[in-house]
Computed example of a mutant assay.
Amino acid sequence: MSTKEKVRERVRTQETTPANNEIVVYNDDVNTFDHVIETLVRVCDHTPEQAEQCSLIIHYNGKCTVKTDIYDKLKPQCIQLLAAGLSAEII
């Protein structure tokens, strides 16, 4: 004979506010790849590889989401991107 044990677990789920805002950077004919990469590294804390990939996506697709977080954290970063001459917005 085997012994069967029933286990019941109560799982608490806590709703968290999703980080549903994102900074999108758009392609333009003004900024160089180097400038975009350096700006993403400085402002968004990207690694150089990450920033390079984003710059290529921006170039070929016309836009790229570079950061996702809550609005209050994204706003100063977006302002810095705009001050650096990039075309960006929070959506």
Score class of each variant (00 low, 15 high):
T3F: 11
K4W: 12
K4Q: 13
K4I: 15
K4M: 14
E9I: 09
E9Q: 11
E9C: 06
R10D: 13
R10E: 15
R12T: 08
T13D: 12
T13Y: 13
T13G: 03
Q14F: 14
E15Q: 06
E15I: 12
T16H: 10
T16M: 14
T17L: 12
P18W: 02
A19P: 01
A19E: 11
A19V: 05
N20F: 10
N21W: 12
N21D: 15
E22P: 10
E22F: 11
I23V: 00
V25E: 02
Y26H: 06
N27R: 05
D28L: 03
D28Q: 04
V30T: 13
N31M: 02
N31L: 03
T32W: 04
D34S: 08
D34I: 06
V36F: 01
I37H: 02
I37L: 01
I37C: 00
E38T: 08
E38R: 08
L40Y: 00
V41P: 05
R42G: 07
V43E: 01
V43H: 00
V43P: 03
D45P: 08
D45S: 10
H46E: 04
H46I: 06
H46P: 04
H46R: 11
T47N: 05
P48C: 05
P48W: 06
E49N: 12
E49R: 15
Q50P: 07
A51R: 00
A51M: 03
E52P: 07
E52A: 14
C54R: 03
C54N: 13
L56K: 10
L56R: 13
I57F: 11
I57S: 11
I58S: 01
I58P: 00
H59A: 10
H59Y: 11
H59C: 09
N61E: 15
N61V: 09
N61S: 13
G62F: 02
T65G: 04
K67C: 09
T68C: 03
T68F: 08
I70A: 10
Y71D: 02
Y71W: 12
D72E: 15
D72W: 07
D72F: 12
D72S: 14
K73M: 15
K73V: 10
L74S: 00
L74N: 01
Q77N: 09
Q77M: 15
Q77T: 08
I79S: 15
I79F: 14
Q80W: 05
L82N: 09
A83I: 04
A84Q: 05
G85P: 05
G85Q: 09
A88S: 04
A88F: 00
I90L: 03
